[in-house]
């Protein structure tokens, strides 16, 4: 039985706890033994992406210490996983060189931190999800999952088509995936970008929503709750009927609320 260290990003922990619980349920359904180390907080991305490296380093160091003992570290956020897999090496370079972070531990964590969908498809080799979900679903491809983790084909590249999330969604009875005009344009969340460039951020979000509305999306889903939080904020303010759900919630068979 694969032993999974569960990494729940800070905002999911505090604001969207059900996404974490749904993640547990999905992993358990496929036979994983889960452990959630309680001294985890955040991966350090908010600080690192603002340029505040010094503030991110101690957070990243904790992360390595906490998760080094697990076979797999699984997280329902492509963005946080990308932080660990693509940016920790650079961020922790000096710490590793100075021996403050164990190199082997770092290598292990870097290699084995996986996004939920990628873990289901690539490690657990899940082929079908026999959970009915009779709704029109629009998949929002979150950028970091897409362009850093390559969870799907990126529209800029001339390369074969695939999408790990779509592959699973398509096996769910009753679920209809809607076609979008711009298949992988950014929603405009971008962390502090959402505040910093508020005007452009909201326009980007509204454009994404519009694309989904035209396609007939009833439930918009994504592998990153942060994008969905931004889009939900716009939808609710404008009293629009479209709902948002994290992929884990759909996989776990939650009903649409």
């Amino acid at each position: 039985m694969p032993r999974v260290g569960l990494f729940i990003p800070c905002y999911i922990d505090q604001v969207y706890p059900d996404v974490g619980i749904a993640t547990c349920e999905v992993l358990e359904r496929f036979g994983c033994e889960i452990d959630f180390p309680v001294n985890q907080t955040c991966c350090g991305q908010p600080m690192a992406n603002t340029g505040c490296t010094v503030d991110a380093v101690p957070v990243a160091r904790n992360f390595i210490e906490i998760f080094a003992k697990y076979d797999h570290i699984v997280c329902p956020s492509g963005s946080c996983v990308a932080m660990v897999r693509s940016h920790y090496e650079h961020l922790l370079h000096d710490e590793i060189a100075a021996g403050r972070v164990d190199k082997a531990a770092f290598k292990h964590v870097e290699k084995n931190t996986l996004e939920l969908v990628e873990f289901l498809v690539d490690v657990l080799k899940v082929e079908r999800l026999d959970v009915p979900f009779p709704h029109k679903v629009g998949l929002h491809q979150s950028c970091h999952g897409l362009r850093e983790l390559r969870l799907g084909q990126c529209s800029e590249l001339v390369s074969p088509a695939y999408s790990k999330a779509e592959q699973l969604l398509k096996t769910m009875p009753g679920l209809e995936l809607v076609p979008l005009k711009r298949v992988d344009e950014c929603c405009g969340f971008g962390g502090t970008f959402a505040i910093n460039e508020e005007a452009v951020s909201c326009m980007m979000g509204n454009d994404r929503i519009h694309d989904h509305e035209e396609a007939g999306t009833q439930v918009m889903t994504a592998g990153d709750m942060s994008c969905l939080m931004h889009l939900q904020g716009l939808l609710v303010r404008q009293k629009k009927p479209m709902k948002i759900m994290h992929l884990a919630q759909i996989f776990a068979g939650r009903s649409v609320v």
């Binding site: 992406n49 340029g51 950028c143 970091h144 897409l146 362009r147 850093e148 990126c154 800029e156 992988d184 344009e185 950014c186 405009g188 969340f189 971008g190 962390g191 502090t192 970008f193 910093n196 460039e197 452009v200 951020s201 980007m204």
Partner: peptide, 9 residues
């Protein structure tokens, strides 16, 4: 450098 959502496109 902050006029960017880091989408990577």
């Amino acid at each position: 450098p902050f006029a960017c959502s880091l989408c990577g496109s």
